[in-house]
Nucleic acid binder design. Structure first.
Lengths: 139, 139
DNA sequence: GTAAGGTCCGTACTATGGTACGGAGTCAAG
DNA sequence: CTTGACTCCGTACCATAGTACGGACCTTAC
């Protein structure tokens, strides 16, 4: 039964290439339950749109600083249609993202200070360590 | 012999506690050249303000997404008073920080969308995967 | 003067996120 | 119907950033 347009049957190599990861990475995700291992019609497994979407999702989520464990959790919530759980997880992640963003902004400002103090002509101290002592406790 | 204000002689345990890290972490940093190993007057090594500052710096820089290798580099630049190098490194890190921040913001917005779509009453699909397909190609 | 607790040091182990390797099977082209 | 590329699978290995362990030594208090 040739169900569905065969246009969607990728081998693991094609799938990996399409998602911009390595074959080994796909296999790694399979081992870790992030990606289903499709059954095979013969010796070789075939993948479709959904796996590709999933892979891309994983990449996006990683870029968002999710760990693979968290991503797995998200995917499970999705599979289980657990709206409640998904919302909760999303909210806690939003919190975490905000924290991380604030942290990075603070750090970036320290770096800016550093770059300025070590500026072109100047001959002052350029104190890398103290550049990070950001908020002097001017209690 | 009580030489000098004994205020500044910390043992490794005190140092670690003061910086909010574990003793093993201090030793790990020493092994990796991030922290000098002070000579010892007797069997036990003693630490002062500068080591504490350095440790705190490392923590700050880590929060700023520097790797330990990069932090080591920064510390060397500091020691060598290499203004040029420090400025360059700082600038490249500022770039990286901006990128990371933007990435996190995008992710956070995806999460917000997700939380909203999975909102209280609705019974639709709550599509976690598509929540991350951020920029819908509304070509 | 001894017992508790801290330090010293090397080595080993952990978790995370892959990456590499080797042998066997499979598939498509020529 | 063979060759070469690709797949399958297990196992091993890598870097990063620690954490844990065990025996020896030191220090301090009682």
């Amino acid at each position: 039964m040739v169900r569905s347009q065969a246009g969607e049957t990728l081998t693991i190599g094609k799938l990996a290439a399409a998602a911009g990861v390595g074959v080994e990475t796909v296999r790694f995700y399979q081992r870790n339950g992030l990606l289903a291992v499709p059954s095979r019609r013969s010796g070789i497994r075939h993948y479709g749109e959904s796996e590709l979407r999933r892979l891309r999702f994983i990449k996006q989520a990683q870029a968002a600083s999710f760990t693979l464990a968290e991503i797995a959790e998200l995917l499970e919530l999705d599979a289980g249609e657990d709206r409640e759980g998904a919302r909760t997880l999303a909210k806690s992640r939003i919190e975490a993202s905000n924290k991380k963003i604030a942290e990075l902004e603070r750090a970036r400002d320290s770096l800016k200070r550093l770059a300025r103090q070590c500026g072109e002509g100047s001959t002052g101290p350029c104190p890398i360590l103290s550049a990070f002592e950001a908020k002097k406790p001017r209690t």
